[in-house]
Write a protein that binds this DNA or RNA. Structure first.
Length: 869
RNA sequence: GCGAAAGUGGCGGAAUGGCAGACGCGCUGGACUUAGGAUCCAGUCCCGGAGACGGGGUGGGGGUUCAAGUCCCCCCUUUCGCACCA
């Protein structure tokens, strides 16, 4: 009696063996081609979820496949270990953030091991290790030396709930990316990375990635950088010193500027209104605008409002005095915080002008038209021909823009300027669980860097008190806080903030190359050999933040001579979310699977028995009560089945709908193979693949299918169609079941059977490594373990068919099919086609006008229908 | 509003411009069984037909082509991203 397939024991045994063997340890091997396969490292939240399992399955598949293809594969894993949840946990349960983090890492590592992923654990890193974050500090200091780090006081995004500053990228629709509470604006002093210095290069780099990164991601990055070409223009103030500087992309409409709009926070607003009749009104307006929560302001819902400041500015070209207003829709953080308002050619200005009765002046006419301010119902924002614009009259918009820049530069009241939406990256966080910033504030010397020799500035683990009082918890640890000034030796204080955790993840892929190197973040030879990452895999949610920062850091490190390539990730795969059916009761909200009971005509609520709404394709989440844990799936079905299903159920970039029936299908599939192999074990063991050459009949057919499957699986993996690769293997297995009754009675037949089974297992190795290893061992597979075997090639002679089936169409509709020798030419195919009775019948209904032949595939006969008359 | 992607059976999904629906799930029937929620075999887009076969069919409408799920134009829907960026 053949043994049943029982994954639990098999998987544990192989995992232990791989660990003992150090199976996935990897070293630099200049003689061999490298492949760096990387999945985004997780935040150690405590448990793996399905999303993690999915990425690791994809990464492991590629790592294993490339290993079999002969590449020296780097496949590391680590932990994005700093961050707010650890502090929240500390507050909620009184554990230390470090302990909480370490315990979570330990647990998640066990879960990863149970998945059988081929990581080189010797290279494991955790960003909360001083040995890691010292290089954050080192990089910070190098950037400081190069003017890429600076300190300033600015209005920042402040999350009152997390009590911390957020980067622009961390504000989503006016709310905190982590806690979803509304973000407010606050004045605070902190450190900034001058990412804007690389804006152009980051933008240009997007073009180089066009064929290897998802277009979507590149578009998002381009929009985020948001470069626009235009001019800065200074409008002198009427009757007083000073000027209002604006940025515009429509300098060609300067003659149509009828007023100016300043952001409520603009310093000139208060200054200009001071002492005028407008002062009180302006103050009231600014106060109201400031009170508006950021979320409401950026949500685009608010009515455009403004107030006259009482001052006028002078149009530098026309000399006309125009009123200066404060307006709630002008953003302080873009451009100069002030705009010239051209109501005829900007919809926002148009609405504002109509509302407050400000003049509208047309300076661009649409081609062949003439606009009348009085009758306009909307601004004309398109390109056209300049009018009422002095020296620009008659010029098309593009030429007028150039002309205007020349005029402005001639008169020194403006210049060509490029503007970006991208802001510098504020990295100071008023939190504890992060990288200390290696700076000292000295009352005598100012801000002084910590000398390199003193790195790392270790985050103190003792005596920490974490609460929600605000301010950095580090300030309450005197031994950390007080530090002699490195310059004058006098009493000074350390910087009490920690770095944004996105700093940690901006270069971790480089640290994997030389995880224990003491001389620099990465050893030059290691970086030269391993970089760039050949395949990076992770969630689309990092399309902007992490991926942009990583590209920025890699360029900085290139400029420091640490790496050669500017782009860290040669190929990017953004995998889709994992979704699950959800149940919702109108009365009681979302229900878990056990709370939605089977009832009349569907599911009913376990509380009120009302019919339950069943929704599909919703991302797994606790709040929706539709979470399935990978842990449980591995326990019930085994890691191989769980992984196989996640790769089979959907293409990797699309969302994956988890289904109990689906995973059972995969379990059935593996069981089928198991029984097949166990059932024919004698024949398979007796077979010698080399004998297959003499196979005949059904066995030569099997060989052809085996080699075709090999080709298909190889190509599908290469183009990331993992689901169809699995389908192809399923087809081969189905065919093997067709042969169940046929005894392999000759050496050639046994050879063909053995070849099929060997290849089947090797093709599956990247998908179901334990399963493949186990059966490979049972059949006595040569050359060591399945994982170490070479990926099978295919014999072109076996892919060639002696005969091919050619589809015969008449007027594009299939009317028959003929089997002809593969070498047959068009003439022969034609003859065969016209010999077919059915084809002849259809062709006979009219006159043959044309015949199109696609060699070996299709013959289309175009027949002119006989008109009934 | 702007931008991007996508709409194919009951469901997940296949199809370098060349046989639409591979593979899997579900369902139907059969075999083996004391039994089956195990396993194996067969069937499963719609309409007509016993069948051979015929007709229709990839969100809707046009177009290009011998040939369109695939390319082009317009519309509808969904998802995602950005959201007063001057």
């Amino acid at each position: 009696m053949a043994e049943r397939y029982q994954p639990a024991g098999i998987e544990a045994r192989w995992q232990k063996r791989w660990e003992d063997e150090g199976a996935y340890r990897v070293e630099r091997r200049p003689d061999r081609p490298k492949y760096y396969c990387l999945e985004m490292f997780p935040y150690p939240s405590g448990n793996l979820h399905m999303g993690h399992m999915r990425v690791y399955s994809i990464g492991d598949l590629l790592a294993r496949y490339k290993t079999m293809r002969g590449f020296n594969v780097l496949h590391p894993m680590g932990w994005d270990a700093f961050g707010l949840p650890a502090e929240n946990a500390a507050m909620a349960r009184g554990t230390h953030p470090e302990r909480w983090t370490r315990e979570n890492i330990a647990n998640m590592k066990l879960q990863m091991r149970a998945l059988g992923v081929s990581y080189d654990w010797e290279r494991e890193i955790a960003t909360c290790d001083p040995g890691y974050y010292r290089w954050n500090q080192w990089l910070f200091l190098r950037m400081h030396e190069r003017g890429l780090v600076y300190r300033r006081r600015t209005a920042v995004n402040w999350c009152p709930d997390c009590e911390t500053v957020l980067a622009n990228e961390q504000v989503e629709g006016g709310a905190c990316w982590r806690c979803s509470n509304p973000v407010v604006t606050r004045e605070i002093e902190g450190w900034f990375f001058r990412i804007t210095r690389y804006a152009d290069e980051l933008l240009a780099g997007c073009d180089d990635l066009a064929s290897t990164w998802p277009e979507r991601v590149l578009t998002m990055q381009r929009n985020w950088i948001g470069r626009s070409y235009g001019a800065r223009i200074d409008f002198a103030l009427a009757g007083r010193e000073g000027a209002v500087r604006v940025f515009t992309t429509r300098q060609d409409t300067l003659f149509g500027a009828t007023f100016m709009s300043l952001a409520p926070e603009h310093p000139l607003v208060a200054e200009l209104s001071r002492g005028t009749a407008q002062e009180a009104a302006v103050r009231a307006f600014v106060e109201k605008a400031g009170r508006l929560e950021r979320s409401a302001r950026t949500a685009g819902e608010i009515e455009k409002e403004g107030v006259f400041t009482g001052a006028h500015a002078v149009n530098p070209l026309t000399g006309a005095a125009i009123p200066v207003w404060a307006a709630n829709f002008v953003l302080m953080e873009y451009g100069t915080g002030a705009v010239m308002a051209v109501p005829a050619h900007d919809q926002r200005d148009f609405e504002f002008a109509r509302k407050y009765g400000l003049p509208v002046a047309v300076v661009v006419n649409p081609p062949g038209e003439s606009l009348e301010p009085a009758t306009m119902t909307a601004a004309f924002e398109g390109d056209g021909v300049a009018v009422n614009s002095g020296p620009c009259n008659g010029l098309p918009t593009a030429a007028a823009k150039e002309r205007m820049i020349a005029l402005l530069e001639e008169r020194s009241c403006g210049a060509r300027e490029t503007n970006y939406r991208l802001r510098d990256w504020g990295i100071s966080r008023q939190r504890y669980w992060g990288t200390p910033i290696p700076m000292v504030h000295c009352p005598a010397c100012g801000v002084v860097p910590v000398p390199d020799a003193e790195l790392p500035v270790v985050l103190p683990l003792e005596g920490v008190e974490i609460n929600q009082r605000g301010g950095s918890p580090l300030g309450r640890i005197p031994s950390f806080r007080h530090r002699a000034c490195p310059q004058c030796g006098g009493a000074a204080e350390r910087d009490l903030d920690t770095m944004d955790t996105f700093v940690d993840s901006s270069w971790y892929f480089l640290r994997y190359c030389s995880p224990r190197f003491e001389g620099a973040p990465v050893e030059a030879g290691d970086a030269a050999y391993w970089m760039p990452v050949d395949q990076y895999i992770g969630g689309i949610e990092h399309a902007i933040l992490h991926l942009l920062y990583a590209r920025f850091f890699t360029r900085v490190m290139r400029d420091l001579g640490l790496v050669a390539s500017a782009e860290p990730f040669a190929n990017l795969l953004t995998q889709g979310m994992v979704c699950m059916e959800s149940y919702r009761c109108a009365e009681h909200g979302f229900l878990g699977p056990e709370e939605a009971l089977p009832g009349a005509g569907g599911k009913v609520c376990h509380v009120c028995a009302a019919p339950v709404e069943v929704g599909g394709r919703i991302k797994m989440s606790k709040s929706k009560k539709n979470v399935v844990s990978p842990d449980e799936m591995v326990r019930v079905y085994g890691a191989d089945t769980t992984r196989l299903f996640s790769l089979f159920a959907a293409p990797p970039e699309k969302e994956l709908e988890w289904s109990e029936e689906g995973i059972e299908g995969c379990q059935r599939f593996l069981n089928r193979i198991w029984r097949l192999v166990e059932g024919r074990l004698e024949e398979i063991r007796a077979g010698v693949a080399a004998d297959a050459a003499g196979a005949e009949g059904a066995w030569i057919d099997l060989r052809k299918r085996t080699h075709r499957t090999t080709k298909k699986v190889t190509e599908d993996i290469e183009r990331f169609h993992f689901n169809t690769a699995i389908s192809a293997v399923m087809e081969l297995v189905n065919h093997l079941y067709q042969l169940e009754g046929a005894a392999a009675s000759t050496a050639a037949a046994r050879g063909a059977l053995r070849e099929a089974i060997e290849r089947l297992l090797l093709l599956l190795q990247p998908f179901t490594p334990h399963f493949a290893a186990e059966l490979w061992e049972r059949i006595g597979g040569g050359g060591g373990e399945a994982r170490a075997a070479a990926w099978p090639g295919f014999d072109p002679a076996l892919l060639r068919e002696e005969t091919v089936e050619v589809v015969v169409q008449v007027n594009g509709k299939v009317r028959g099919r003929v089997t002809v020798p593969a070498a047959a030419g068009e003439e022969e195919v034609r003859r065969a086609a016209f010999a077919d009775a059915r084809v002849r019948d259809w062709v006979g209904r009219g006159e043959v006008r044309k015949v199109v032949y696609i060699p070996g595939r299709l013959l289309n006969v175009v027949v002119a229908a006989e008109s009934p008359g």
